[in-house]
Design a binder for these strands. Sequence first.
DNA 1: TTGTACGCGTTATCAA
DNA 2: TTGATAACGCGTACAA
Lengths: 337, 337
Amino acid sequence: MATIKDIAKAAGVSVTTVSRALNGYNDVNEKTRAKIKSIAEELNYSPNAVARSLVKSKTETIGLLVSELSLSGAKDMFTYEIMCGINDSSSEKGYDLILFSTNSAKQKAKSYSQLCRERQVEGVIMQGIKIDDPYLKEVIDSNIPCVLIDVEIEGENVGFVSTDNVFGAQMAVKHLTNLGHRNIAIMNGHNQAVVSQKRLQGYKKQLEEASIAFQEEYVLNGEFLEEKAEKVAYSFLNEHPEVTAIFCASDLMALGVMNAAKRLGIAVPEELSIVGYDNITLAEYVQPQLSTVEQNKYQIGFKAAKLLIDMLEGNKANRKVILDNQLIIRNTTAEPK
Amino acid sequence: MATIKDIAKAAGVSVTTVSRALNGYNDVNEKTRAKIKSIAEELNYSPNAVARSLVKSKTETIGLLVSELSLSGAKDMFTYEIMCGINDSSSEKGYDLILFSTNSAKQKAKSYSQLCRERQVEGVIMQGIKIDDPYLKEVIDSNIPCVLIDVEIEGENVGFVSTDNVFGAQMAVKHLTNLGHRNIAIMNGHNQAVVSQKRLQGYKKQLEEASIAFQEEYVLNGEFLEEKAEKVAYSFLNEHPEVTAIFCASDLMALGVMNAAKRLGIAVPEELSIVGYDNITLAEYVQPQLSTVEQNKYQIGFKAAKLLIDMLEGNKANRKVILDNQLIIRNTTAEPK
DNA sequence: TTGTACGCGTTATCAA
DNA sequence: TTGATAACGCGTACAA
């Protein structure tokens, strides 16, 4: 492991000169610079980012905090695609990514700001954080720049990237009301996700616009799980034959609902229309193909990293990024009989 | 940002004492330790890992080198699931993960060992590396501990984790020969992947055991891409009606072959049997459900990190980890007519 | 049981 | 254009 010291000795100059030569300062003789550079190459030198970070108080590192980097999310590619976007965006700007994995046990042991300061990350991107996550409160108090995905909190050092979930849900439900459906249920996710609340809002909003009375009992909770949604839908559809359409807050839950319908002998879309949310890969592979609301997950990640880096580098940037989403009509929706 | 200096001043002791007190050395008075600890808490102190790394020459960090953390891999969850395993395993042992994203442009600018030494990672896990990747040669020469996934290279500082691809492929083909198939083609991936070579071996091996002559023209190249496989299969099946089964080196390619068959009006599995490889999520959602060879991707990642950390910590460990895989029979395979 | 002094590899300040 | 020297925050011989 050659250091600038070794180079200095070999070149017969001081470490100061080596440092400046290698970092492209212009107050160094081009001849000595050339000499130093060639020696550096010869010695296979590479700068020690750790030492540099220490003295510059800059690590060029972004922390990635994913609440659950786990297999539970394996069916939808949500986290992965977002990570791809984050990765591309941050590597473009020369930032490295450090993965903070957290589980509740670790959270108890180490606070958010401890985690960040320990590794000296310059900023953090958070994904998959539930609304009651203890770290969330800390984010606001701490002065560490942070970008949240799908959690709409704004502040001096806090921004967020999200899609317009109210509008997305409304679009989905509007598609159903336009087809003539009146008895529309919603299979929502758990309440610890901000998006659940937003999508419920969009659902209600469209019902109102279509002059359909909101019914509390039409709000189901599938907890974003396929199996749970199937179970819930099974008994619900049994008791509510009048319902001709279900809007689901995730594709995974829509899959569950489709299974329930199948088991009950309810034809999709002839007797029951279903709209999902996310447009996961599976959506176009299931039979019938699932109508859904598409979110550009890669873009979410990409923009999140971009926003964070803008914040870090003092560029002015809107701390609130809302991306479009779009309705994709496939074969699980039709006019009611 | 409180440092041990601040604590030392507040506690009226030297930094040495603070350091030792906080790190649990037993040559410090319990009373002073208590005092120091409480002050540390008060000041919301957290140790600076950067400074610590510099002096200890240990970063407790593992580099994760994924050749393509990109959307091309989004359909199969391969990379993601492996990452989950790596993450769980390494965080269990107290190592953090730093994401090295590489593309060919960056590779030209920075060598493998430069990348590693710059960030001072203690070891590296590589996934998705092609056999002709320039970094691969460097791994062997460099003395940085490294674990490769699916590339079988062994050495003092190099280990690998893989599944038994020869056996897996043989199992798949054996399933076909057992059903009575004799004219079996293989849709292989590109040659830059080690697994392609292994799976071809397994294919040949089983043909031999079943006394079936190997035919070069039955070896197709789908480059691990769905579209490419579909295209190749389309013209191949057209010209070779005698072929009753195709073994595919990935599920994604199997999907492509299924599409080709559909377009040609060839019934699966009645007229054509198909076996895939990987058992991606989609495999059980397509119609008919895909028979395939399952790999435990999470385990691959988990064991890879475990092996690397064992190497780092000087524990003796077999540098060669081969995991089992298993045949999953679904509905794309049947006896030939 | 505690403190002094030095070093890790680098950059920054100042003087030459 | 160059070089001493201090500093970043921490750990650790060694001495006290």
